[in-house]
Design a protein around this nucleic acid. Sequence first.
DNA 1: GCCGCCGCGGCAATCGGTTGCCAAACGTTG
DNA 2: CAACGTTTGGCAACCGATTGCCGCGGCGGC
Lengths: 344, 344
Amino acid sequence: MGAARRPPAARSAPTIYDVARESGVAASTVSRAFSRPGRVNAETAKRIRAAADRLGYRTNPLARALPTGKTAMIALVLSDVTNPVYFQIIRGAETAAAAAGYTLLLADTQESSLVEREAIERAIPAVEGLVLSSSRMSDSAIRMAAKQRPVVVVNRVFSDVPCVVTDNVRGMRRVVEHLAELGHDTITYLAGPEASWADGMRWRSIREACVDLELRVRRLGPYRPTIGGGLAATADLLAAPSTAVVAYNDLLAIGLMRGLDRAGVRLPQDMSVVGFDNVFGSDFCTPALTTVAAPLRDLGTAAVQQLLGQLRGGTPRTGKPTVLPVRLLVRDSTAQRSRDSSPA
Amino acid sequence: MGAARRPPAARSAPTIYDVARESGVAASTVSRAFSRPGRVNAETAKRIRAAADRLGYRTNPLARALPTGKTAMIALVLSDVTNPVYFQIIRGAETAAAAAGYTLLLADTQESSLVEREAIERAIPAVEGLVLSSSRMSDSAIRMAAKQRPVVVVNRVFSDVPCVVTDNVRGMRRVVEHLAELGHDTITYLAGPEASWADGMRWRSIREACVDLELRVRRLGPYRPTIGGGLAATADLLAAPSTAVVAYNDLLAIGLMRGLDRAGVRLPQDMSVVGFDNVFGSDFCTPALTTVAAPLRDLGTAAVQQLLGQLRGGTPRTGKPTVLPVRLLVRDSTAQRSRDSSPA
DNA sequence: GCCGCCGCGGCAATCGGTTGCCAAACGTTG
DNA sequence: CAACGTTTGGCAACCGATTGCCGCGGCGGC
């Protein structure tokens, strides 16, 4: 038998009025004692604070939010919580938010632009701003949201909405350089979701790098950005092999490696595979995946900090996106191109 | 240049008063038209709804929350967002919450009971109830929270607070049966955090199962429930080997397997390793990990549904915990005990 | 034909803070 | 001692909804 019968919200917490009575001042004074330090006499403030402690008073964020609009909450909107790229992004965002006294409201849109739109609509009145990560919504829908609340977009670029992105260009360039050094002359890119801005960017980047370094590239896909997607890509790849494969992201790469392994392809001797993101698991799959380490945690932190900056009255910092640096992690899934393997 | 200068919260949204004026009724009638269907005339309601649409009115959850206490939010408190066990729990919780029109407020406590306590204090006034997953707080601290708001605890048992747990007993029993069938007669358990209720439970369960099935057990640890923890456990294990190892969770098991691999131990021939949870990655590590599939997603869903039940006025359903079933997944990390390997 | 009930809409108080404005009290200065 | 400026605290309106209570008008019953 739990707590005895009681109204759902338990006995109500003490209010400024209780504190006011306890300390012998008016409620407004109590309010000011908390929200506006210098405004009340130091002595009085101390007395009030003591009374508040005695009563266990905590200011009610909802009540405060009504007149001021400051809810101390920001929404983090994700395309899929079960995707490991988000672990670190969430962690980074959470840490930054908590440090500033803000609380995160989480919305998982399950890769659906419809669900995403509804989640945003529901969240907007309760939050001061939003971080949209890997949004699947249209540009105009995002701009619409940005008109109602400050917004920072992660992993997607806008000229008129602040955004924080991974340095896809340099990342892909490093990948191509690495593969070129290993003697590969043709690269196959496994594409991710069409609605993904990052996919377009990564494809463009790899193509340009290949032009510069005089390698050939081709593109297979799109595939779902999951292990299942990688498994599904295996057949396509085997139908037209290549000595070097770069996947849109690690999940796709890991799935592909599993598929190739089942098909008897030896990695990395027969084929080199590269991922992107350096998600949890990319180091302990077999072979350990060579990948581009995206600054996931920093992405979350930077996005929230930029949002908080706006909330404090800063200008939105639009125009150029904030680009965060990447690092190529060479592990065991890439190797010198063997003489006997034939390009496509 | 983003949107032009404007107060942080943009131009304020339309209120019931705007709708009231637009449709020629009193504000209270507008309120009732939305919150209490039968209470106003169907015709009037239609007119009001039309006016609301025209203005793009959405009821402000904060304003509604103030008098009613219904914020349509619940807090999900986790010990560590970067731990993959939580992916599915979060997903399950999010889905269940969203289906009921509730929003999730996320708090990551980073394995600290202090951070956890503060997060809970901050969240309480804004939410209708809390789900505490793998809490690191003391029993009394949890009871304290439960006194202020309905609480459901995940992966921990209380007699006076509703809880939802994995069937650790049966899970461990299945593990022991499996290992016994393979000819192992001694099992080493790698312990997780001491503050973890689940660890205590798993250890007790494996010990009991071993007594029943006449195997020997011993316990090493505690270790951090991460891959790093597993790596750290390797040396201890090698100092006193065993043919079968059961880890507190998958992460520990995966870390251990990496450590053993580096040390030249062949898996599973020389040693069988079993994990717990079936987290993301346990299927594609090498060898694929034999593990107990915890009903992670259902844990999240069930916890939220139970909480929602309470919010709707149900009784807390305390006493016996809700136990969710598990499944043993036999993969490649366990094998017949080889003749030449010697027990400890 | 009168009474009473019922359906429906409005008034106004309320939730718990915030804040503009005012006034009391104090100290300063001429 | 009077005039004035500066703290400092209180009054009351307000944020946007909810809801108890009231009243008006219509209708059925006797």
